[in-house]
């Protein structure tokens, strides 16, 4: 099975100290859209996760979601649900899957996929409006950045 293959590989890498990130094309989602193992093979840093969530060039998650713990960054949107208390009712695996590609859990959702590099219509080179070749695309967030955001969301225990 593909999943065991990947997790076995992660175990191997982890033992070699530096973990290889799972590439966007290799991520295995379960039938609910959750992702079982760390994308980077390393634990996340919640403080960096919080910074990514408010950074317009990175996650910019607060463009759509209100998060009380991030209130010192101005202007939270209301396109998605508030994430207060999310760590209390979503597992780490679910959160990883939602951030990597929310469409695996919420069909047709407006929420962008942060760890995906293929299958786009007219992908651009960042925000230049110019064309990008698919092979040059990088995910919006790196494997480690996604782990950092997951780690931050897990700290949001009470709403």
């Amino acid at each position: 099975m593909k999943l065991t293959g990947i997790s076995a590989a992660i175990v191997l890498c982890a033992s070699a100290a530096i973990a290889n990130p799972v590439t966007p094309g290799e991520v295995t989602y379960d039938e609910y859209g959750a992702v079982a193992t760390s994308l980077s093979g390393a634990p996340g840093d919640p403080e960096n996760g919080a910074a990514i969530m408010v950074n317009r060039g990175k996650g910019n998650c607060v463009a759509c979601h209100a998060v009380t713990a991030l209130n010192d960054a101005p202007f939270h949107g209301e396109v998605g649900p508030t994430l207060d208390g999310i760590g209390g009712y979503r597992t780490e695996e679910e959160l990883r899957g939602i951030i990597a590609n929310a469409k695996m859990m919420f069909e047709g959702t407006i929420m962008p996929a942060f760890y995906k590099t293929s299958g786009f219509i007219r992908p651009g080179d960042g925000y230049t409006g110019k064309a990008a070749k698919e092979e040059d695309l990088t995910p919006i967030l790196s494997a480690q950045e996604i782990e950092d955001v997951v780690a931050f969301l897990m700290t949001l225990q009470d709403s």
Partner: peptide
């Protein structure tokens, strides 16, 4: 608006 979706306009 299209540029802001990280697309080729």
């Amino acid at each position: 608006c299209i540029r802001d979706t990280r697309a080729e306009t």
